[in-house]
């Protein structure tokens, strides 16, 4: 049962899983990059990033590049360890 407990409900959704995977291997990614990689709409991405941010798995930085507002995301230390635990649990479940 303890393995099942490590499966993190927050990462159970396909898009949240995608966002976390991208941020795990990149220092940061901006809104448009995430959108293109995941192939989803603005609203959809915004709601998922918001919920991950609320859980403190990711960090949001808003800044201006020239005149354009730019939102970029990065994973927090807490998010990193939570996601690693989630991957370990997944791997154990499928018997690797």
């Amino acid at each position: 049962m303890s393995i099942i407990n490590n499966i993190n409900k927050a990462f159970d959704h396909r898009i949240k899983l995608g966002i976390m995977s991208i941020l795990m291997v990149n220092d940061y990614a901006d809104f448009n990059t995430l959108k293109e990689l995941l192939g989803i709409t603005d609203g959809n991405l915004a709601s998922h990033t918001k919920s991950l941010e609320k859980d403190k798995y990711i960090k949001v930085e808003k800044q201006f590049i020239g005149r354009k507002p730019n939102t970029r995301y990065s994973v927090t230390a807490f998010g990193k360890s939570a996601f690693n635990k989630h991957i370990d649990a997944l791997e154990k479940l499928i018997g690797r």
């Binding site: 899983l17 995977s21 995941l38 997944l90 791997e91």
Partner: peptide, 12 residues
């Protein structure tokens, strides 16, 4: 899920 993680990590 695992393959999606791998895919996103390498694509990004």
């Amino acid at each position: 899920d695992i393959s999606e993680i791998k895919n996103m990590m390498s694509r990004s």
